[in-house]
């Protein structure tokens, strides 16, 4: 239990460090992967909704505090994203890789949709803006993030545990 907590704390910390240092350097036309979102997604799959909700909330809150977004905007979107992803907890149901990819994309959409809706409600705009932002920003970002999300799968697939020793 303690090992798991430390492992995930380490993963989130690594994601925060990479997100703020390396990720901006590998952006393509201003589109960068969201490693925290990927980490939250896998965390939710592994641990379930309860923990994913609170981890999502505090991760989002942290992002809000250290970014220019409205306070609570990321907290709300990540709480919902964590809740949604946690619904497919591996202990409850078996999720294959294709389904995981679809789920990740949906989680991204859900997260960004809430984020953009809050943006529109506070700053003004319409449904069209939300859809436009989802299409322009979320799709490439989700796909780019998917490449990083596939890394653990690739490692499992091509470097089995026995050969990694």
């Amino acid at each position: 239990m303690r090992t798991n907590i430390l492992k995930w704390a380490g993963i989130f910390l690594l994601c925060v460090v990479l997100q703020t240092t390396v990720v901006p350097l590998i952006g393509l036309s201003g589109i960068t992967p969201d490693l925290l979102m990927v980490a939250l997604f896998f965390f939710a799959l592994k641990t379930g909704q309860m923990t994913a909700v609170w981890v999502g909330f505090f991760l989002g809150l942290g992002q809000d505090l250290f970014s220019t977004s409205i306070l609570g905007q990321n907290a709300l979107s990540k709480t919902i994203a964590g809740y949604f992803a946690g619904f497919f907890n591996e202990r409850v149901m078996r999720v294959d890789i294709v389904f995981q990819i679809v789920l990740l994309l949906v989680t991204f959409f859900l997260n960004d949709a809430i984020y953009f809706i809050v943006q529109v409600v506070i700053a003004g705009g319409g449904t069209g803006k939300v859809v436009h932002d989802l299409a322009v920003a979320t799709v490439p970002r989700a796909l780019y993030s998917l490449l990083f999300a596939l890394l653990p799968y690739i490692r499992e697939r091509f470097m089995p545990t026995s050969s990694r020793r």
Partner: peptide, 9 residues
Amino acid sequence: ASCASLWMI
């Protein structure tokens, strides 16, 4: 969590 977020928003 949502209420807290919305309150902040």
